Lab assay of single mutants.
Amino acid sequence: WIARINAAVRAYGLNYSTFINGLKKAGIELDRKILADMAVRDPQAFEQVVNKVKEALQV
């Protein structure tokens, strides 16, 4: 799951650890299995999560 998430978030200019930190700051409580599945099956929803994380990180 970690490898999938890392590959997906790198397309948005983040790395895995920064993304996970941003999830916590944004108050998003999705587990890694769901995030990895979302990255593959629903990229639009995953992009929305990434955008919320970037807002929380102020990137």
Rank of each mutant, 00 (worst) to 15 (best):
N51P: 00
G13D: 06
D31K: 15
R32P: 15
F19S: 00
I5V: 04
T18K: 12
V53N: 00
L35N: 01
A3L: 04
Q58F: 12
R10W: 05
I2W: 15
D37C: 08
V49N: 03
Q48R: 13
V59I: 09
V53E: 00
R4D: 13
L35P: 00
N15C: 08
D42V: 06
I20G: 03
Y12W: 06
A56F: 10
V53G: 01
R10Q: 11
F19G: 00
F46T: 00
V59Q: 14
A56I: 10
V59D: 12
F46M: 03
E47V: 08
K24Y: 14
A3I: 06
F19N: 00
D37W: 12
N6H: 03
G22T: 04
A8E: 03
M38L: 12
R4K: 14
A36R: 03
K33V: 07
Q48V: 13
V53S: 08
E55Y: 12
I5N: 00
V49A: 04
E55W: 13
R10L: 09
E47F: 08
L14Y: 04
L57I: 12
A36W: 15
N21R: 14
L23C: 05
A45D: 06
A7I: 11
V49G: 01
D37Y: 15
G27Y: 06
P43G: 04
V59H: 11
A3Y: 04
P43Q: 05
A56Y: 08
V59T: 13
V9L: 13
R41P: 02
E47Y: 08
A11F: 06
N15R: 06
I5S: 00
A45F: 07
E55D: 12
K52E: 13
A39S: 11
V59G: 09
N6K: 15
G22V: 02
A8R: 03
A45I: 10
A26Y: 02
L35M: 06
K33I: 12
G27W: 05
R10E: 10
L35G: 01
I2Y: 13
E47Q: 09
F46Y: 01
I34R: 12
V59K: 08
E29D: 13
I5R: 00
G27E: 05
K52I: 11
G13I: 01
Y16P: 03
K25Y: 06
N15M: 07
D31E: 12
V49W: 03
I28L: 07
L35R: 01
V40W: 13
F19H: 00
L30K: 07
V9F: 02
K52W: 10
